[in-house]
């Protein structure tokens, strides 16, 4: 039982971290609450379906094309829509939410409302510490951890990554230091969409693919990011894993019915007691 919670919780945690990191990055760098974030996750799954199933491309190529497509959509949304209303946080939230619904209805018209399945890279099961888990889930975990480490290295070690963090800390000062803030914004947007897109392609094979699949991950990512402290990347990772263990633990020990309620209650409680989140510094809304 303990190992069950540890292993399945870690897998869910890595998935949640993938979703939440991009959301967190956008808030940290651009102070944007981008409610279109869940749609990247959905679009990646549908693009993969389009390329791999309908067009019968090789899976690796299909996934690469999907991720490029998602990043392109993200930059387009940022240029055409978000950029215009950046000043008002509520306008950004409503605009991106409207676009998310628009995308959902568009996808429903193009692909139909039914559940689809997309192919996975691996099949079969693997056993770890006596717990049997499907290989697809193990792959999702590996990819998730790999990308978290890659992001950590990118942010900490490369010039481009550090420029993003500099803009997050103080855009004006970053400009004075010769950092191109516009490029940093675009890069953060791309990375954010890429991470959510990867979550879509590695997780969609064992979850459902349908036009409404964006909403729940979006709410969870939102909650994780606030739980971890808006703008704190490592707070988000911490919160994602906590949520992963909590959900797995509750659904194994109690029932899947109460799983979401426990999670939501924790979020509400943290908001009321410590609105700045676990690792957040101060309340700047």
């Amino acid at each position: 039982m303990g190992y069950d919670i540890l292993i399945n919780g870690s897998i869910n945690g890595a998935f949640y971290a993938l979703l939440a990191l991009g959301f967190c990055l956008m808030f940290g760098v651009a102070r944007l609450v981008n409610l279109y974030h869940g749609s990247y996750y959905m679009l990646a799954a549908y693009f993969t379906y389009l390329f791999a199933v309908l067009l019968r491309w090789p899976l690796l190529l299909a996934v690469a094309a999907s991720l490029s497509g998602v990043v392109a959509v993200a930059i387009l949304v940022d240029r055409v829509c978000v950029n215009r209303v950046r000043q008002s946080s509520i306008a950004v939230m409503i605009c991106t939410l409207g676009l998310a619904y628009f995308t959902q209805y568009l996808v429903r018209i193009l692909f139909g409302p039914r559940y689809l399945s997309i192919p996975a890279f691996v099949s079969g099961n693997a056993g770890i510490l006596g717990v049997v888990i499907p290989s697809t889930r193990l792959l999702a975990f590996g990819v998730g951890i790999g990308l978290i480490l890659a992001l950590w290295a990118f942010i900490g070690k490369t010039r481009a990554g550090r420029s993003i963090m500099a803009v997050a800390q103080d855009p004006e000062a970053a400009t004075y230091m010769g950092i191109n803030t516009a490029a940093a914004f675009t890069m953060a947007t791309g990375i954010s969409a890429f991470l959510a897109g990867v979550a879509g392609t590695v997780v969609a094979p064992f979850l459902s693919v349908d036009p409404g699949m964006w909403l729940l991950p979006l709410i969870k990512a939102f909650a994780i990011v606030i739980l971890g402290g808006l703008g704190s990347l490592w707070g988000s990772v911490l919160a994602a894993f906590l949520l992963g263990y909590l959900e797995t633990g509750v659904s194994l020990l109690l029932s899947t019915n109460v799983r979401e309620i426990v999670f939501l209650a924790v979020v509400l409680l943290v908001l009321i007691i410590k609105p700045s989140g676990l690792l957040g510094k101060s309340l700047t809304a």
Binding site: I261, L264, V267, L268, P275, L283
Partner: peptide
């Protein structure tokens, strides 16, 4: 009372979602 912007958005969203789950349970 202290919350606004995205914080209040999430808190109210969560409160309503909890109410919906409670009704289901």
């Amino acid at each position: 009372l202290r919350l606004k912007g995205p914080y209040l958005a999430l808190a109210t969203l969560a409160a309503a979602a909890i109410a919906e789950r409670v009704v289901m349970i």
